[in-house]
């Protein structure tokens, strides 16, 4: 009753490949198609209607880039894209500044503590992302916990306006993605050959010099992996800018959401999705190349 090996393999490879092809790759083809169709708020809110695969070829031939022209002519979209990139880059930098000392301290802690510390860093990730972002509202609002404490301590005389500003969005982004920075950096530092740092110390290098010329270069693969894991999702983030940002906080994920749910303009939302995707291809390839360079 020997089942042919190839057939057996087909049963293993087939289902996941079929599923992801049908529900992940195919939808992108549809997004692209609708992004290239004309905007017309009808039900379903795009024109022309789905006419089956046979007509797809004829349809593709008649496509024009009208929706993309709308996007490129409207400075809102370009501004939102640039502002998303800027905020994501800032959040990545801040996550590194907060995450590196934490990862370093974790890697320096006694061995028997390290597993517990890793679990402590991962644990918040298991609780609801939405709820954790929402909690920051209670902390940052004018009558919130932070202002309450600062006023009591006499540090400030009137409440700081942090909620609904870019600062709040940055805090939210750093908070949400911090574990993604800490874990790869910790993994790199933990594997690091400590004798190299000791050698630098023996040769008279002061602590800062040791950090900059030995520790950080050796931890580079971890830092790059962390930066990638923070930056890429932060660019398209919706929940954080929506809940913590203000009316003037532009982020592309929020713009897409508004176009889709409030303006019900599906072609426009699809075109924004395509642009966001194109925007992310660059950083993804960039990080991949850097990571390869660091590994070599």
């Amino acid at each position: 009753m020997a089942v042919p090996r190839r057939l057996l393999r087909l049963f293993v490879v087939g289902p996941p490949l079929l599923w992801l092809g049908l529900f992940f790759l195919l939808p992108f083809a549809i997004v692209l198609r609708i992004a290239l169709s004309d905007s017309a708020p009808a039900l379903p809110p795009y024109a022309p209607h789905w006419e089956g695969w046979s007509r797809l070829g004829a349809f593709l031939a008649a496509l024009d880039g009208e929706t993309f022209a709308v996007i490129l002519a409207d400075s809102l979209y370009l501004d939102a894209l640039l502002s998303s990139l800027r905020l994501a880059a800032l959040a990545t930098l801040l996550a590194l500044l907060v995450g590196f000392p934490l990862a370093y301290a974790m890697a320096s802690a006694p061995r028997r503590w390290q597993t517990a510390l890793v679990v402590l860093v991962i644990l918040p990730f298991w609780t609801s992302f939405l709820i954790r972002v929402y909690a920051w509202i209670a902390i940052l609002r004018p009558e919130g916990v932070l202002n309450l404490v600062l006023l009591r301590l006499g540090v400030i005389s009137e409440p700081l306006r942090i909620l609904n500003t870019e600062a709040a969005v940055l805090i939210g982004l750093v908070y949400s993605y911090l574990p993604f920075m800490v874990l790869p950096v910790y993994a790199a530092l933990e594997r690091l050959d400590r004798s190299l740092i000791e050698a630098a110390a023996d040769l008279g290098a002061p602590p800062l010099r040791r950090l900059l010329t030995v520790t950080i270069p050796l931890a580079k693969p971890g830092i790059l992996a962390g930066a990638f894991l923070v930056f890429v999702p932060a660019v398209g983030e919706f929940v954080v800018p929506d809940l913590l940002g203000g009316p003037d906080t532009l982020m592309i994920g929020k713009v897409l959401w508004t176009d889709f749910f409030s303006n019900r303009d599906w072609p426009l939302a699809s075109a924004v999705a395509v642009l966001l995707l194109l925007l992310l291809v660059g950083p993804i390839l960039f990080f991949q190349r850097l990571a390869k360079g660091a590994a070599a």
């Binding site: 992940f24 939808p27 997004v31 789905w50 994920g253 897409l256 599906w266 992310l280 993804i284």
Partner: peptide, 17 residues
């Protein structure tokens, strides 16, 4: 690495289609 808004939108368009 896919932004959730894109995954969500593209799946919806598939379901509608």
């Amino acid at each position: 690495v896919m932004p959730e808004v894109i995954t969500g939108l593209s799946l919806l368009l598939l379901f509608v289609g």
